[in-house]
Amino acid sequence: MLHHIHYLDKKSAAFLSEALIKHFSKKTDYTEIVVVCIGTNRYSGDSLGPIVGSRLFERLEGNRHVHIYGTLDKPVHALNLQRTLSYIANRHSQAYIIAVDACLGQFYKIGTLQLVEEPLQPGAGLGKQLHAIGHIHIKGIINNHGPLNHKVMEHTSLTFVNEMAAVISRILVKASQEIIPHLLSVNPKDNQASS
Rank of each mutant, 00 (worst) to 15 (best):
M1C: 09
H3K: 13
I5A: 04
I5Q: 08
H6C: 02
Y7K: 05
L8Y: 11
D9E: 12
D9Q: 08
K10I: 14
K10F: 12
F15Y: 14
F15Q: 07
L16A: 10
E18P: 00
A19T: 05
A19L: 03
L20Q: 04
S25W: 03
S25A: 13
K27D: 15
K27H: 13
Y30Q: 05
Y30H: 15
T31P: 00
T31K: 10
E32S: 15
V34R: 03
I38F: 11
I38G: 01
R42Q: 14
S44I: 03
S44P: 05
G45P: 05
S47N: 09
G49W: 02
V52M: 06
S54V: 07
L56S: 02
L56P: 01
F57N: 13
F57Q: 15
R59N: 13
E61A: 14
H65F: 14
H65W: 12
V66W: 02
V66T: 07
V66E: 01
T71Q: 02
D73M: 10
K74Q: 12
K74Y: 11
V76P: 02
V76S: 05
A78L: 07
N80M: 09
T84I: 11
L85K: 06
R91W: 00
R91V: 03
H92A: 06
S93Y: 04
A95D: 08
A95N: 06
A95F: 03
I97W: 06
D101C: 09
L104C: 10
G105D: 06
Q106H: 14
F107H: 12
I110T: 12
V116N: 10
P119T: 07
Q121A: 14
G123T: 07
A124F: 11
G125S: 08
L126S: 11
L126V: 15
L126R: 12
G127V: 10
K128Q: 15
K128L: 15
Q129W: 01
Q129T: 13
H131P: 13
I133T: 06
G134S: 08
H135W: 01
I136R: 02
I141P: 01
N143C: 06
N143M: 03
N143D: 15
G146A: 09
G146L: 08
P147A: 11
M153G: 00
E154D: 11
H155G: 10
H155T: 14
T156G: 06
S157R: 14
L158C: 05
F160Q: 11
F160E: 10
V161M: 06
M164Q: 04
A166K: 07
A166H: 03
V167S: 04
V167A: 04
I168S: 02
R170L: 10
K174S: 14
S176K: 02
S176N: 07
E178A: 14
I180M: 11
L183C: 08
V186K: 07
P188Y: 09
K189P: 00
N191G: 00
Q192M: 13
A193S: 13
S194W: 07
S194C: 04
